[in-house]
Nucleic acid binder design. Structure first.
Lengths: 191, 191
DNA sequence: TCTTTATATCAACAAATGTTCATGTAATTT
DNA sequence: AAATTACATGAACATTTGTTGATATAAAGA
């Protein structure tokens, strides 16, 4: 029991450190210091520094894919799918803000092998969102504009959330947040 | 004359390398190799590795501030100011895509001294944009919602542009791009 | 032409960094 | 109680990395 606590704490603190300092700038010694134990002990929890990043990134990436797949397979209208995508992003980001932060900022630091794998997952995610938008255009719900720009815009509209949730000072009812973000994406800021 | 070519080439290639590999992952030896000269020669152009990042970041940051200040001091309506902000972002990002990439991705790698200075500039920029949105709400042009969320959303809507412009495969008429992005921010994707 | 400036090289250093080995102790499981 | 697993430590390693000093050549300006 206490072991699991130790283990959990190790990954939690490592994650927070990597979020704060960046993956490259976080050394094994930083992690050991933070947990107040010896450098070598770190390697009782992980095989290598990179495996830490790999674990965090592909875990959270899978969570996003899983959530998005449920939405896509649903019978929701494109409009409601967008709503659901916003909701998914808010939920995952509020629950696991530091991992989402790595997802946005640290994937560039993966070694080539994992990096290309990650980029494929990233592209796949973007393509799934693109499909939702295409559906909406075909059904006449969404404006008929350049799909790529629209996809980038929609994705960007939720990508900053980790900034909101890793900054303690900002709290807000998740449902209100969802309502406003969805409103922004669907209707913009103009009256 | 040839000296200036050399110098320009040094900064250009350094910038591209830092964009590609990230600042921490780019070593002085990487830069020297890329330019096909000795490691020590790098220090004929710069004082330290960090000064490279500092130069790039604060230069491009100043360009954004200068552009934004002109917009704010103008007599444009809030709506047209948003238009102009989109236009500014497209212009600067298309002209200096790699520097904008660093602006988004690499400022975290500044040493504390410069990092806090940079964050102040970043916050100042965000506040200026927030003011434009507040004006729009007061004048009744923009929806009366949570200003912070709206500001983040608007900023996010143009932040991905560097991704578009550092990927050669994507070309588009800047005026069309501006029109569509402005349309997204003002009216969203819904019909 | 002479002097200064820009560009280039070689060698070397001190510090930082990821990782391993051998070994020990505490906790869990059987 | 014994055996296995989890957690911990100290010392050491081979590389990598930013930086410097001494020095040489080519170009530009006086």
């Amino acid at each position: 029991m206490k072991q699991l606590d130790r283990r959990d704490r190790f990954f939690q603190e490592s994650l927070k450190l990597i979020h704060q300092k960046g993956f490259k700038a976080t050394t094994i010694r930083d992690i050991a210091d933070q947990l107040d134990f010896d450098v070598a002990n770190v390697y009782n929890y992980i095989d290598s520094k990179e495996s830490l990043l790999v674990k965090f990134l592909f875990d959270i990436s899978a969570a996003f894919h899983q959530g998005l797949d449920h939405i896509i397979e649903s019978t929701y209208s494109p409009q409601d799918k967008i709503r659901a995508i916003v909701s998914l992003n808010i939920r995952l980001t509020s629950q696991r803000p530091y991992e989402v932060s790595l997802l946005v900022n640290e994937w560039r630091n993966l070694a080539p092998r994992y990096r290309s794998k990650f980029i494929k997952e990233k592209r796949a995610y973007e393509n799934k969102v693109r499909c939702v938008i295409e559906q909406g255009i075909k059904s006449g719900e969404f404006i008929n504009t350049n799909i790529e720009i629209t996809t980038y815009s929609v994705l960007a509209s939720v990508r900053w959330l980790f900034d909101w949730y890793t900054d303690q000072s900002k709290k807000m009812n998740p449902l209100d947040l969802e309502k406003q973000l969805t409103s922004f994406i669907l209707n913009g800021i103009q009256c």
